[in-house]
Amino acid sequence: MKKIIAMTLLSAMVLSMTACGSKEVTEEATTEAVATEEAATEEGGQLVMATNAEFPPYEYREGDQIVGIDADIAAAIAEELGMELVIEDMQFDSIIAAVQSGKADIGVAGMTVTEDRLVTVNFSDPYTQAAQVIIVKTDSEIATPDALAGKTIGVQLGTTGDLYAEDIEDATIERYNKGFEAVQALTQGKVDAVIIDREPAKVFVEQNEGLKVVDEEFTVEDYAICIAKENSELLEKINTALATLQESGKLDEIKAKYINAE
């Protein structure tokens, strides 16, 4: 499945270079083409998005492009606002600091709204719902979140999985810098389970033999875009843009493109 996406994107890129039109191509090309043109023609300027491109299918690298649900949604929002989207890739735990300090305008990184985060930044309306799930080896006895007590759990530092895992009784939390490293540690038997967002979990399980997602979700949560506290004007604009995209079905289209591709 993954290969098919890659192939499509690759062929899309080839096609766009030879300037042959198809639906796939126009969609791919929008991010760059529209952005560059509009930066020159319209008054909007740049919309800098901070993300951590190691979180498929929300954001990840495909060749030298950062793609994924978040990247496409941000591109669609930028288009609505008439701005040029610039993506800054950084460590996940630096994103909020970047937004807060004005180094980035928005943080779009599969980010869950939490009380702690609300102290520092504002969040847009949720653009999708996600769940934290548990990945285990197929022969694992862990079948429910309760069974995690006393286990060694791998998470990605600073993610919601990391925050919630702390509350698990007697569990040892191993905080990896990258989600895939936590999964690698799981396949190597270094941790008993990994708590991570549902969508990347699906990809990881598909790509690694002998892993499965535990049926019962660990938590269910909303993903939203974070914006600096002072920047309430941008917050409104983005909420309006999100509403428009929801209305037009564009949001679902983007999500379907990545999630239901398999």
């Binding site: 600091a97 807060q100 930044v121």
Partner: peptide
């Protein structure tokens, strides 16, 4: 990493 964990909690 200890500092990083605090950073990831407080965003400071």
């Amino acid at each position: 990493k200890g500092g990083d964990i605090i950073r990831s909690r407080t965003y400071d």
